[in-house]
């Protein structure tokens, strides 16, 4: 099985530790992933801004970079969702179709391809899980409150399996954090307010460590946590899970 690690541009530049944790976690789970250095970005920033046509060369670069792999795995639900859903505007060659179908979010890959549903380890903290909308509603990685009162999902299960970890029960389980890509600057006021409300929900309900599967939401929430100097640590779930496994 040839697996490529897809490291979204902002993770590459600002959160290398998240990519390192993803790489190491996969390795501990028996998968040696490669990082094709031709990769840059999925093109979502341009496309969400209404410049999908301008993003086409970026889409082609993405496909070129990853077409020789069986799976493309990334620690960011939103970017993965973009590749799977919105790469429909370029010619659907076998390579494009292959890349779209086999680009998976990290935990989706771990659970559904590797078949690993429990990771042994201990993390004795009060952990708040932030669900990325694109991971949850787009990739169906978690139940949606629009459909059912049952709170369940891939990351919730993986994290719940850790010893000593207590999950925060949020007042609003799956409200959007307000990042939204370029929304965070074009609608900066609303974006900030949404982020502040999301962080408040965690603080009110006792979150010590705020985590999730999508670093873009977490980048935004971390920016608010640091600005408000709140006693909350923000970690990508790959960092937690990689950290608990004795390598």
């Amino acid at each position: 099985m040839k697996v490529a690690l897809f490291v979204p541009c902002y993770v590459d530049q600002f959160y290398p530790q998240v990519a390192i944790a993803s790489l190491q976690l996969l390795e501990k789970l028996g998968v040696r992933a490669h990082f094709p250095k031709q990769q840059t970005c999925c093109g979502q920033p341009m496309a969400n801004s209404g410049c999908e046509q301008d993003a086409k060369p970026v889409y082609h670069n993405f496909v070129d970079a990853f077409q020789d792999y069986d799976y493309v795995v990334g620690p960011a639900g939103s970017c993965v969702y973009h590749v799977r859903k919105h790469f429909d505007i370029i010619e659907q060659t076998p390579a494009v179709q292959h890349v779209r179908t086999n680009t998976l979010e990290l935990f989706d890959f771990i659970i559904n391809v590797l078949g690993i549903t429990e990771i042994p380890g201990s993390f004795p903290h009060k952990v708040g899980l932030h669900l990325s909308c694109h991971g949850q509603r787009g990739l169906h990685q978690a139940n949606e409150s629009e459909m059912t009162p049952v709170r369940d999902g891939q990351l919730r299960r993986l994290l719940s399996g850790l010893q000593g970890l207590e999950l925060t029960e949020l007042t609003r389980n799956d409200e959007c954090c307000g990042f939204g890509g370029t929304f965070c600057v074009s609608e900066a006021g609303i974006s900030a307010r949404m982020g502040q409300d999301r962080v408040q929900d965690h603080v009110r309900n006792g979150t010590q460590v705020l985590t999730g599967g999508d670093m873009s939401c977490l980048m935004h929430l971390e920016g608010i946590v640091r600005r408000q100097k709140l006693p909350v640590r923000v970690l990508h779930a790959a960092e937690i899970l990689n950290g608990v496994i004795i390598g």
């Binding site: 490291v7 902002y10 993770v11 590459d12 530049q13 600002f14 959160y15 290398p16 530790q17 990519a19 390192i20 790489l23 490669h34 990082f35 094709p36 250095k37 965070c184 600057v185 074009s186 900066a188 006021g189 900030a192 307010r193 982020g195 502040q196 980048m219 935004h220 971390e222 920016g223 608010i224 640091r226 600005r227």
Partner: peptide
């Protein structure tokens, strides 16, 4: 506008790709 309510991420010394290129065990493909 990002900075009105948020801190920017703290920029690391190395990007992931720079770190990766330095790891001896990684192929350079």
């Amino acid at each position: 506008p990002w900075a009105i309510a948020r801190e920017l991420p703290e920029p690391p010394q190395q990007s992931f790709r720079e770190w990766y290129a330095q790891q001896p065990q990684n192929d350079k493909a």
